[in-house]
Design a protein around this nucleic acid. Structure first.
Lengths: 186, 186, 186, 186
DNA sequence: GATGAATGAGCCTTCATTCAT
DNA sequence: GATGAATGAAGGCTCATTCAT
């Protein structure tokens, strides 16, 4: 039954990610369990504490960031000015920001930080490689760190309450543009 | 008891504003009542529905934005390059962003939008006057609207979970800098 | 200001009577105060406890029952068979039953009974006079007491939840007919 | 835990029925839960809305009415005059009336009526069979419907505030007698 | 005397978490 | 291992009652 368990684990992480993204950070655990197609008990078997679920989501995030980096490392070396917006778009697509609140809130931070950090550092290193190439191409100031870049992007793309978009259509992509422009050297 | 009631009303709005800013949009109403130094029933007398509380906070916000504009209109005419960062800092200080989720979420939007819009438009007009001066001084691109400026600032300064600041110290002010740089004409 | 106070007192009793009749026994005291056009404090000044309000309503009831008796005593002597249904209809109209739950529930019965009883006895005596005439005309069995008659009528006409009337239209008047028929001697 | 759940469900219905009968239609849900020996959450799992609890009680009522009909159908055929009061007493015993307010009030009537009606019609049909036998024996007028009979009985036996019985001892059974007498053909 | 604001207890409801099957 | 039922602690809200003006 090892295969079932593994599939369940993956389903739960995916469900958590989707629900946090679509329904916000207050999605009930029961909804996650249902979305994953498992019972509440199963969720707790796999992730006894919130930290564990957080860690699971972080693992998924880290792995996916590596995939993005794989995809764009070549293009960024060949033609950085053309590739850069595509890379950024793919990172934005991950909705890191939407996950962040749950990832960080309501959690014994001392405990989780240590567990997260390795994953996070690996992901940041992957992002950093691309950012370095962007610096080389004059797309990003020299003093910008990978962590700053990633965090800034996360903040800029945090989902807005739907009603906000009514006021300023497409804030998010406008803001990413402004952000990227602001990152450039003078 | 008219004076007491008015004081209580103001205390509740202030408490709501502070708690939404510090503890996030899920601050329990009981906490707001306690912070305001009133009973739960008093909160309900003044603000029977969430909309009413939201509207109260929006009113406070609108009034305060006008004060900020009063303060900076002169300096922006005299010496825009020096005044601009100070104006922005004052707007940031209002933590509009921290209030936004509650202002927009979990509320019968159709109903409240109409009531809010007049206040909001007035506030945006006030902000807009200053932004126009900034455009005149070459600090902001011509195609930026007051709504875009304000919303972008709000998103950039939305409070992060405290743990996030551990990773990138002072993200918010760094991000505001990047944002302002990105707003400039090429 | 004696006149004002008296008018307020009457307005409160009338409001209580109307609200208990229309909105049921759970009408909030604040609604009664509003219906009476006075503040909550005024209601409490006149009727410090529920008993007092109950007593007030009972007084109104007693007085009105006497009026009904005045109106029908003559006709019942002249032409009892014709007058009897009219008398019953007038008593039904008082909606004694609708008031009963509040009159009797949630009240320190030991205390209130003593205060009520004199009024009630007077009212029952008034009803009794008419009932005696009905007995003389062969409309009511000899062993029926005024209290039984009144209470039975009250029970038979207690207001039904509105949805119940959908099932059996006009239950109340049908039931009063059956009741009156059941009261007759064999 | 399927067995436990079923037992809990039954216990909740029984508790609701008993509390509505004894403490009136305003019995707090917490009291029902306690009486049933379950937590508040369990009550909500089984009956997420008031409609659901109402429906549960109606189901119990319908089933029990059928049992009563089973018990009396034979006797009513053999010896209707002797059986009739016993049948009526058993129906009275169900305290349908005590349940009625909750069954009908404070409920989205449009929604629940449809769900209830089948059960109710079946129960009325069962009662109707016995009533027809009573008509055949000259105990009930021809124009009385099963719905009228049942509703009249319900109204006549609705529980009185305890203090009312002090005035007229045993109103309920006296009233049922009068009611039955009133139902007879002239 | 009248007013209506303030209070706080109590009820309804949701949801994270545990546990029997 | 999986399931989903049970639990109980909050939180939202109402309303009887008190009290300052």
């Amino acid at each position: 039954m090892r295969a079932d368990a593994r599939a369940n684990r993956a389903a739960i992480i995916d469900a958590a990610r989707r629900l946090y993204t679509t329904r916000g950070p207050d999605a009930p655990l029961s909804a996650i369990a249902e979305e994953a197609g498992v019972g509440a008990g199963t969720l707790y078997r796999h992730f006894p504490t919130q930290q564990d679920l957080v860690l699971g989501v972080v693992e998924w995030l880290s792995a996916t960031i590596h995939e993005v980096r794989e995809r764009w490392l070549g293009p960024m070396q060949t033609n950085p000015h053309e590739a850069w917006p595509g890379f950024v778009a793919d990172i934005v697509e991950l909705r890191v920001a939407a996950l962040m609140p749950r990832v960080v809130e309501g959690v014994d931070i001392e405990t989780v930080i240590a567990q997260i950090s390795r994953r996070r550092d690996a992901a940041l290193a992957a992002v950093g490689e691309v950012v370095e190439l962007a610096k080389g191409a004059g797309l990003v100031r020299e003093d910008v760190t990978a962590a700053q870049f990633q965090m800034g992007l996360a903040v800029a793309t945090r989902p807005l309450p739907s009603a906000a978009s009514a006021l300023v259509p497409d804030v998010s992509s406008w803001l990413v543009e402004v952000y990227l422009r602001g990152l450039r050297p003078d």
